[in-house]
Amino acid sequence: MSKHTVTIEINGSSFTREVDSRLLLVHFIREDLQMTGTHIGCDTTHCGACTVLMDGRSIKSCTLFTIQANGKSLTTIEGLESGGKLHPLQEGFHEEHGLQCGFCTPGMIMRAVELLGKNPNPTEDEIRTGISGNLCRCTGYVNIVKSVQYAAEKMKAEVA
């Protein structure tokens, strides 16, 4: 099996490690770097619990080899709050009770970061389509949509 040295920026810090070619990105994040905010749900590219941002785009980290992220910049759920202040999406999920068991939450939030970045004024339908790659098995989608709407309003107010 081949070993490769990778350098990956995560949440603003650079990490250089030697990894097996077959090491999936989600295992690198959770096991090698001990950042366990990113979850493994289905492990089959369906549920979106492992969603992180790579160069600003949401991807499922269970379906990428770590080596493919070499030289890229990642953001995980741990990188969202700044200076002890929650990201508007994190605040939204808190305020609108956007979670029950919380397992899908990091993936939902990371997906919604890209969604609101591209479309700051999404309709409810656009939010639902936008998070169609994320499953909540508590099925709390109504409050998840409200949480994203809360964040959209808050982010607009911050810009204004």
Partner: peptide
Amino acid sequence: IADPQVRNM
């Protein structure tokens, strides 16, 4: 095709 995250890759 699939979902938004998959379409990003």
